[in-house]
Design a binder for these strands. Structure first.
Lengths: 211, 211
DNA sequence: ATTACTAACTTGCGAGTAG
DNA sequence: TCTACTCGCAAGTTAGTAA
């Protein structure tokens, strides 16, 4: 029997703690089920010790029990592993050096200092990383956006910047140019420090999960 | 159609990123489904853009897509609200003063200093709180246990200690005696500082989620 | 209003099996 | 071996309705 998706929807609306006073028809709308089905599944949830249940002609009262908490905690821990300390490991690569060029441009430098609060080392760190991890990281974290700008008749593209910790030591930002010539496999990092690694392996941890 | 529980089970075994090479019968064992049903639900998951799927006579390859990441992130954020910054708000109550007595006993004081690394203010803070929240908190956090001891012919019971932050300011520990005379509604807190609050309301935040 | 029963209906499951 | 089809059956869902 399916439990977790129903618990989550109920928690989203009513919270996790204390007694929930509602009705089976109200829950039916929430869970996309008929009044009758809600009645049935709540009886089943009670039988299996997921909830306390108190029904009367005036409505229904439910309260989550230990078994629900455990299921949710288990789920949370499972996801926590992937969603909290998001770490990508990669190998230093030369890239095409385009970042080095950008990071020296006064227009970008100024914005890095103002928006990211960083005086970057004049060069970028290019890492070859797992494509799918980068894709997922972008979904999990909210970038700080540096809008594109004009300088005379040259235009400079926007950058999406993701704050990170490099090798558990230095703060930095992973930059994604709007129009990049990189494949998704290579990420570009700026930091106030020059990053060196004897085996060319570097790990990047994304710290804050903004939703 | 049910998606989340299946995704979670797959992630638990195979991880969240990259291509998963497996077979429908192997997944069947994991998901408690027949080989035929796995084949069916994977086709359905692909139709609904949860996964990429690549099947051949040698087995099946799947990879999670953005829709799966979003569902999981959504679920994580929902749970994160309750499971990370676990906060209980309560009202100061006099209690029966039993904590004040214990905290002055040399045997306990010594253990508080050694095990909890705290020189507690000679008195406890008693808070009347939501019973169900306390119950949930105990499930989510791992206590530091102070084992019971003997002193002459008197025996002193064990304590379960949960580290916390009081009013976003002071570190402290919530203590649960093995044999307490408190109802579950009153929690007992020790701290190096005397906690005062003009309206008698105090919040307690539990910081680390140890699984 | 409610809850929750029974009965009809619909969806989902898996055994058999083809490719 | 493998995937994935068909089809019979089981489980889950809802309409009708009693209390």
């Amino acid at each position: 029997m399916v439990v977790l998706p129903y618990l989550l929807k109920i928690i989203e609306k009513y919270g996790l703690f204390g007694v929930i006073k509602t009705s089976t028809s109200e829950l039916g709308e929430l869970l996309d089920l008929s009044q009758q089905s809600v009645s049935r599944i709540l009886i089943e949830f009670e039988k299996q010790n997921y909830i306390h249940r108190n029904s009367s002609v005036n409505g229904i009262e439910i309260e989550f029990r230990e078994k629900s908490y455990k299921l949710l905690k288990y789920t949370y821990n499972l996801l926590h592993k992937y969603f909290s300390d998001f770490r990508i490991t990669g190998k230093i690569t030369q890239g095409i050096g385009e970042g080095k060029y950008y990071v020296k441009l006064p227009g970008y430098r100024q914005r890095f200092e103002e928006i990211l609060d960083i005086k970057p080392y004049p060069g970028t760190l290019n890492l070859k990383v797992d494509k799918s991890k980068v894709k997922a990281m972008k979904l999990f974290f909210e970038p700080v956006r540096i809008e594109g700008f004009k300088n005379g008749d040259r235009t400079f593209g926007s950058l999406d910047c993701y704050k990170c910790i490099i090798n558990d030591k230095f703060e930095g930002w992973v930059l994604f140019a709007e129009r990049t010539t990189h494949s998704d496999e290579i990420i570009e990092i700026i930091s106030e420090h020059e990053i060196k690694s004897p085996d060319n392996k570097v790990n990047v941890t994304f710290v804050k999960n903004c939703h």
